[in-house]
């Protein structure tokens, strides 16, 4: 863990169509810590993650990863530092797990991917399925493979966009177990989620987004205090979010 921010997002702005999705997002993430990106639908969570991942460009602002700005660094080089897992596992149904992971490893230039694949299979508990086609896997296992795909090149930063959305309880728990594994604990993780309980279990800090702006950036344990007297993190976060909604209505 270091004091230098692993990710720094400065005044990020993005307009999609006629809507200002991001209106000046600022936050920073320290190395080796886990951050929950929370907010209602349309708050700008996915857009923020996609910009940080280098999938989308921003209209204004800056994204700095490990001291280097995305604006000055080649996108391909930027992607080497980041692992990204979307809401959908995005696995090729006709390929086996090993073939998918080999392809991704090849794209990152990993020289000998098989030991890494086997190690990730053991750690994330999908080792027995590596020779099976992805189309035959359960949703939970697919999502675990998607996480392994994002880790195959050993990135410093992992971005997870609602990895447990649309999963049943068992699958969600399986993914949560994967997220709590040692491989992830040592990386900087931003986890976009709607689930406050998940954020509380898996993350150290929270970044709250509402209508394209950050309204809270705090350690999980401090959120209740910031909400002036809320009994716990969840109620504290909801209180802070509601104060934003009241403010927006008043405006």
């Amino acid at each position: 863990m270091t004091d230098d921010p692993a990710i720094r997002v400065v005044d990020l702005r993005k307009r999609l169509g006629t809507r200002d999705v991001l209106r000046g997002v600022d936050f920073s993430c320290r190395g080796g810590r886990h951050y929950a990106l929370l907010g209602p639908n349309g708050a700008g969570k996915t857009t923020t993650l996609r910009i940080v991942a280098g999938l989308l460009s921003c209209d204004a602002g800056e994204v700095v990863v490990a001291g280097e700005s995305l604006a000055t660094r080649a996108r391909a080089a930027h992607r080497h530092r980041i692992g990204y897992v979307g809401e959908d596992s995005g696995l090729d149904a006709r390929l086996t797990v090993r073939e998918v992971l080999r392809f991704v490893a090849g794209a990152y230039g990993v020289r000998r991917p098989d030991p890494a694949i086997d190690a990730l299979g053991d750690e994330l508990h999908f080792g027995e399925y590596v020779e099976r086609r992805c189309g035959a896997l359960s949703k939970g296992t697919r999502q675990k493979v998607a996480i392994a795909r994002a880790l195959i090149h050993d990135p410093a930063v992992l971005l997870l966009d609602e990895p447990t959305a649309n999963l049943d309880v068992d699958a969600s728990l399986a993914v949560e177990t994967a997220l709590a594994s040692d491989s992830l604990r040592r990386r900087t993780v931003i986890l976009s989620t709607h689930r406050l309980d998940e954020a509380e279990r898996l993350c150290d800090s929270v970044i709250g987004l509402y209508e394209g702006r950050v309204f809270v950036e705090a350690v999980i344990a401090d959120v209740a205090a910031e909400a002036s007297g809320a009994p716990d993190f969840r109620r504290g976060f909801v209180a802070l979010l509601n104060s934003q909604r009241v403010g927006a209505t008043a405006l």
Binding site: A53, R75, G90
Partner: peptide, 8 residues
């Protein structure tokens, strides 16, 4: 999305 996020 998984394809486009790769450094290819």
């Amino acid at each position: 999305e998984a394809l486009l996020v790769l450094p290819l």
